[in-house]
Design a protein around this nucleic acid. Structure first.
Lengths: 213, 213
DNA sequence: CTAACGTTTGTCCAACCGGTCAAAAATTTG
DNA sequence: CAAATTTTTGACCGGTTGGACAAACGTTAG
């Protein structure tokens, strides 16, 4: 291999593409379960079915794997919020945002936990992105929501905290999965829990807890 | 020292009491910021102002510190839910439960993060407690809430998911504090964020997002 | 004072961990 | 086929970490 595999335009062989994917998949599994410091290169290498030096041939440092994983994650992770659009009925729009976020918690729990781990530790590696890209996006969407409020389409509240509450309630089912399943027990903790959660969240966000009439 | 300092009824000298408290306080700081595997005995010892062997004189293994911390935590952590009572107005009762939980996120963020870390890693050390003590308590309170629903005092929903959503939204302000502050920015991310959150959550849980009338 | 007991620390060790390196094996290229 | 290049691995290294230990130090009771 003549070039450094880093930098802006690294051309890669077919094997490099495949092996890097394999490693990232294994690393997602390991990092999301044990955190960054709790994971070892050996664990990731074993999960990827290769030796440690071989893994280090594709990613020179442990941090490089984590960084690559994190960059990819953020794109897909914020996709649902990006889709939140001004076209269509506001309440419907919010409801489908909540549904999409809940589906992501169901289908990509490892990604959610990887993200949660990073934030819990103080986001040492992605703080700039939070203060920059993320803040910009949220501010933008908060403005959209504010517009809906001014138009009387939804009740007036704090759009930022509304977004936080959607993140919190949906990601809870990925990040705190063990607890959710433990509390629901064997009978209610099965696959149906996400549909129950979806029904509950829809009702909560639309109507709250006050009794009708 | 003649006895082993473990077991059911370890009698301890005054110095042992004090130093153990000092260590637990330091360990809470370190564990909550770095996770279990991310924390070293040396870090804790330094934070407690003593040498590593000295710390190991009071807690023989790193795990013992974590275990002690965890046991204490769970008692205080579930106190607000225990207080949820059948006396008084249901909506008021739920509102003050939410307020208490939010205050805990504000006043004891380290405890919240310690707990979140443990759950995120799959709760290896406290799973039995979740399936036993915690499940029992939640089932009990879910029954109380169901009673309120039957009496028409609050809207009918899933009490278990209601409790999850309260946990998720309140603990979010402790566990994801970095993100919350990054998104709110310098002006709105100050101390006032908890009051804004309290106002928002109250409205969300009571009325939802549908516009009035 | 002194013996007994409780506390503290310097030193050490074995296991682990991230990363290097050179050489072998496999693959591609001409 | 043979040369060039890419991929894989065993062996190794230096630093860190959890924990052991014995000796020193401090305190308390007789």
């Amino acid at each position: 291999m003549t070039d450094t595999m880093e930098g802006s335009a690294p051309r890669r062989t077919r094997i490099q593409q495949e092996k890097r994917e394999l490693i990232l998949e294994a690393a997602l599994e390991v990092f999301s379960a044990n955190g960054f410091r709790g994971s070892t290169i050996d664990q990731i290498a074993e999960a990827a079915g290769m030796s440690k030096p071989n893994l280090l041939y594709y990613f020179r440092r442990k941090e490089d794997i984590h960084e690559t994983l994190m960059q990819r994650l953020l794109d897909t992770w914020l996709a649902p919020l990006r889709e939140l659009d001004d076209i269509g009925d506001p309440l419907t729009e919010l409801r489908s945002y909540i549904r999409r976020k809940l589906e992501m918690a169901r289908d990509f729990p490892r990604e959610s936990r990887l993200f949660a781990n990073e934030i819990l530790q103080g986001a040492p590696r992605i703080k700039p992105m939070l203060e920059g890209e993320l803040k910009t996006l949220v501010d933008e969407k908060a403005a959209v929501i504010k517009g809906w409020m001014r138009a009387g389409k939804i009740a007036r509240t704090d759009p930022w905290h509304l977004i936080f509450s959607i993140w919190a309630t949906t990601q809870h089912y990925a990040d705190f999965d063990v607890q959710v399943r433990a509390v629901l027990g064997a009978d209610r903790g099965g696959d149906g829990r996400f549909e129950d959660a979806a029904r509950f969240l829809e009702q909560l966000f639309l109507d709250g807890l006050k009794p009708k009439g």
